[in-house]
Design a binder for these strands. Structure first.
Lengths: 361, 361
DNA sequence: CCGCACCATCGAAACGATGCGATTCGCATC
DNA sequence: GATGCGAATCGCATCGTTTCGATGGTGCGG
């Protein structure tokens, strides 16, 4: 409704009521012109749309519509850390790709939200202020647990990829523990006995030197990230004597440096089991820098089966259905929005033998 | 307000009025408990928050709040094609990274919207139904032009990176034509005369064989993408006799195949000027596949200065301030939301000499 | 030629919160 | 105990739309 037609030209926006007035119909009829349901003459509809065009009405105000309908048509996608880092991560990216594909088909908007523990309050408040119909936790992060109570109170359906394992969250889980166990088993069958493990930084924003060498099964309980913990536990079940080192950051370089620590030790491993593919690429570099040929002098394995551009080798790894888990998460969102209650699922993984593994020298 | 306390347990959500009733205050006072402005006793606020906790009220409904305030706190980020592809593109990603950084500081949500021409209507309707306070066109795409009228009608401020060059869009532009001209000039100074150009696919969703070899200045006007066109024109101004080929797709492979066409021609070029860094990497591969050493046997240049992981060479290219243009776009959004009217800017680019260029053999 | 059904249109009440102006409260002062 | 004043609280209109039930008009069958 145009109210402030003052000389200072402060104009509020054009509303449906203005259109109705111009077309000489009631606002309820004018509303009909924009909906699929309800009956209205083609003639009146045309008249209304003409009036709308005349005064520059661009269609119903989304906010008002949402208020009435109780739906915003927006799905929140929550990533740990920052948006930037999430999208540099090939695993998150592949999952996102599947998710986007599914959400596109649902005709919903995708609202990207990052949540990091440091700025906990702030990003939690941001999420609380957003009109989302559902949320998806795209990556695993313990910091998400703090967001759950308010989502529950607002009855916003939640879907999680790999977590959080909490009440009210429909999960797309990955059977990575057994995948890692299979991989480790194969390496043992090949004859490896001295094994090193490069694990991911436990803090998502880590950036520094790698941690000290330690026993693979040291202090599991202090590792709060479930995914990291379970993968490690799987290796420990096969190689209880393995040595592990934690990468200092998330970049390729951190993986290379951490792997270097293992290789420079007094009795270096014959196989390095990196806990993800990026770390494995770092390990390949560390090997190359030391004149070691893979797989002749050293076996290197990864995990995830992510697509790493420009890598000309075929990594021995465990493939996750990355794109598919995004799709599944999207499907769940669809079902939840339709009022259903999909059940959580666990997706399988598959060992993939590449050209970076072989018997110990 | 709990209305439907039917036995079928259909409950609408808890509202501020419920909280107020329980705390025995008016809704306006209850509202005060959640705002920063206005005066309210600490005692009453505590009582209200306690009541809220008791019946599980999670704070004011974002949609209702938006309706009153006229603001959603959401900024739309529009990419051409699909979300997936946008984030596989290092240039878009770097820009997004700067943009996200700036928007994070503004405490606004980031709504990702993709728009492709095929599904024009559909994605336009999606955008129209979204409660955004401003939009950013993250990548250049002609298909965006169709979105402008309705954004203008709704008076939603628009910021564009490299376009669209249309009224009402505040631009962060890049001086790439002159950057490309400088690069081409250097190559001429090095002595190159037979030059090949690998240009990007003009259709964003292209996926097929490369186009035919043609004269560099053939049919400029049919190239609707301004960025592609202007870069090409800059090369043509220095090397009017250059030969060009259009890559068949956006993947690395397409660049390699297209560059191969140039190299396999009767009189192959001594320098390949790829129109972006990914294409240049493709050209490097094509050279390697043919036993050509770069830069001894062939010069290869790129454009963008994007960070390409796993590339161990230093590409000769033109560096754009990618992160910065995202930051600038974010700053503009901030000013627009604050009621200001920032002016468009043109950011400079810089020639960077790497180890992929040299005099012709 | 009358009555009935049906359909287009309308009026008014939500949706859930906020903010203005009015009212009441608490307390100090005379 | 009456008065004054600022602070705390309240009532109500409002944001722009959708939707429900009511109303009036048209056309058709009996």
């Amino acid at each position: 409704m145009v109210k402030n037609m003052t000389t200072s030209s402060v104009r509020t926006s054009v509303t449906l009521a203005d259109v109705a007035a111009l077309a000489k119909v009631s606002t309820s009829t004018a509303s009909l012109a924009y909906r699929r349901t309800g009956s209205i003459t083609e003639r009146t509809r045309a008249r209304i749309l003409a009036a709308a065009a005349e005064i520059g009405y661009a269609g119903p105000n989304p906010t008002a519509r949402s208020l009435k309908s109780g739906r915003s048509g927006i799905v929140g996608i929550i990533v740990a850390g920052t948006v930037r880092r999430a999208f540099q991560n090939p695993v998150a990216m592949a999952t996102m790709s599947g998710l986007s594909e599914a959400l596109d088909d649902l005709d919903v908007g995708q609202l990207l939200l990052s949540h990091r523990s440091e700025s906990g309050d702030r990003s939690a408040r941001l999420l609380d202020g957003m009109p989302v119909d559902a949320v998806v936790f795209l990556t695993r992060g313990e910091e998400f647990d703090g967001l759950l109570p308010s989502m529950r109170a607002r009855r916003i359906p939640m879907v999680g990829v790999e977590g959080p394992h909490e009440e009210g969250v429909t999960l797309v889980d990955i059977d990575d523990a057994s995948g890692m166990a299979v991989l480790a088993g194969r390496m043992r069958d090949l004859g490896h006995r001295r094994v090193g493990v490069v694990m991911r930084a436990t803090r998502i924003d880590a950036n520094g030197p790698p941690g000290p060498l330690s026993s693979v099964d040291a202090d599991f309980d202090s590792i709060s990230n479930r995914t990291i913990r379970e993968r490690l536990r799987a290796v420990a079940s096969v190689f209880p004597d393995a040595v592990r080192v934690e990468a200092g950051g998330r970049e390729l370089d951190s993986g290379e440096i951490a792997a270097g620590r293992l290789l420079d030790a007094a009795s270096p491993p014959t196989a390095i089991l990196a806990q993800n593919d990026m770390l494995a690429v770092g390990a390949l570099r560390a090997a190359e820098a030391r004149g070691l040929q893979v797989p002749r002098d050293l076996t290197v394995t990864g995990f995830d089966g992510a697509d790493i551009p420009l890598l000309d080798r075929r990594l021995t790894t465990v493939e996750q259905p990355l794109h598919d888990r995004g799709l599944q998460a999207g499907r769940m969102v669809g079902e939840l929005l339709a009022g259903g209650s999909p059940s959580s699922i666990v997706l399988p993984v598959a060992f993939r033998e590449g050209d970076t593994s072989g018997p110990p020298r």
